[in-house]
Simulated scan of single mutants.
Amino acid sequence: MKIRPLSDRVIVKRMEEDVKTASGIVLASTAVEKPDTGEVVAVGNGKVNNDGKLQSMSVKVGDKVLFGKYSGQTFKMDGQEYLTMREDDIIGIVEA
């Protein structure tokens, strides 16, 4: 994917979750909620603060992040679905 988000925007690819119940029943993709975790695939340069200085981003490409259920805007590129959101919409970085 070749896209560079502007200012404090981040592009995230949702992480796939298991679609099986504990007993092994496979659920239809329409019956499963979309996950609210994803991997950062692109970040902007940062946000210009009130002093006119560029505030660098806290997240980087490859970070696994947690975001709000209704955060971001969905778009498709190269047959893949992505989310674009502001860095403020990210709740935190998921560490191993």
Rank of each mutant, 00 (worst) to 15 (best):
D36C: 09
K64S: 05
D18V: 10
L6S: 11
S29A: 11
G68H: 03
V10K: 04
V59Y: 14
S29R: 11
E95Y: 11
V26R: 10
A42K: 02
E87F: 07
S71C: 06
M77I: 05
M1I: 10
D8N: 15
G72A: 05
D8E: 15
V59K: 01
V26T: 12
V40Q: 02
A31N: 07
K69Q: 10
A31Q: 10
D18F: 08
G72T: 01
V12L: 12
K20F: 11
I91T: 13
L83K: 03
E39L: 14
R4N: 12
P35N: 09
Y70L: 10
G79L: 06
S7R: 14
K47R: 10
D89A: 06
D88W: 01
A28I: 03
M15V: 11
V59S: 03
D36L: 00
D51T: 13
D89R: 01
D63L: 07
G46H: 08
P35R: 04
G68S: 06
S29T: 08
L6W: 02
V40H: 01
S29P: 10
V43L: 06
E87M: 08
L6N: 11
K2C: 00
A22R: 12
Y82G: 09
K34V: 04
I90Y: 02
M1W: 01
K34F: 01
S7Q: 14
S23G: 07
V94C: 14
V43Q: 02
T74G: 01
A31V: 04
N50L: 13
K64L: 15
A28H: 14
G72L: 01
M85I: 00
L6C: 04
S71L: 00
E16I: 06
R14L: 06
G92Y: 03
I91F: 05
V43E: 02
V65G: 03
Q73G: 02
V12R: 06
G46D: 07
K53H: 12
A31P: 02
S7G: 03
S7A: 15
K20W: 06
L83D: 02
V10Y: 05
I11G: 03
P5M: 10
M77L: 14
S29M: 11
D63T: 08
E16L: 09
T37F: 07
G62P: 02
V19D: 08
Y70S: 08
I90E: 02
R9D: 09
G92H: 03
V48L: 12
D51Y: 13
I93G: 00
D78V: 03
K47C: 06
V12A: 07
S7I: 13
M85A: 01
D8K: 15
V43R: 03
E39M: 15
K2F: 09
S29Y: 08
E95L: 11
I11M: 05
E33D: 08
S71G: 01
V41A: 09
Q73Y: 10
F67D: 00
G79Y: 06
